[in-house]
């Protein structure tokens, strides 16, 4: 698919909503379409976080590997982002990502995008305005999960 198509798709993704056309074009230059089969590992814990993904259609599980029994702590669906670790040094994936169903996504080259953000701080700021709320939201969800509100002792 041509970069122009990718640019239009990026502009329509909820996460990038409101970005101007030049920024969408710049981001599209770092992107490509990817497809994952059911069960395919997208990345593993400890891998370089050199790509992040905007899930267009599909279903991805984020898992903690270990003890022969992976534990899923979050699932991602249409419009969600995978691998926010691309933003923070040392740029390593914190857990495994596995396609639970056939998944179509936009893969964005993190090194390419980090370079463009260094060159154009306005672009960097626009992306930070979108990523920081996402990270805060996920932190809040993780805290709620850690509280184990439905756990032992709960009578409702």
């Amino acid at each position: 698919m041509a970069k122009k198509d990718l640019e239009e798709i990026i502009a329509q993704e909820p996460f990038f909503r409101g970005l101007n056309a030049d920024f969408c074009k710049t981001i599209a230059r770092c992107g490509k379409h990817v497809r994952f089969d059911k069960g395919q590992i997208i990345y593993r814990q400890g891998d370089p976080a050199d790509t992040f993904y905007v899930i267009r259609h599909g279903y991805v599980a984020l898992e903690f590997p270990g003890g022969g029994r992976a534990m899923v702590h979050q699932t991602l669906h249409d419009g969600d982002l995978a691998n926010a670790e691309w933003l923070v040094a040392p740029y390593r994936c914190l857990w495994d990502a596995r396609a639970v169903a056939a998944t179509v996504a936009i893969a964005l080259d993190a090194a390419c995008l980090r370079g463009k953000c260094d060159d154009d701080h306005d672009l960097g700021y626009e992306l930070m305005k979108r990523f920081v709320p996402l990270v805060v939201e996920r932190l809040s969800h993780a805290k709620l999960q850690a509280l184990d509100v439905y756990g032992e002792g709960s009578t409702t």
């Binding site: 898992e63 029994r69 534990m71 899923v72 702590h73 979050q74 699932t75 969800h141 999960q145």
Partner: peptide, 17 residues
């Protein structure tokens, strides 16, 4: 559900999502 093993085919995450 708040957490699951890899056999679960449904959603994992908090209810506010």
């Amino acid at each position: 559900v708040d957490y699951a093993d890899a056999n679960w085919q449904g959603r994992v995450g908090v209810i506010t999502q």
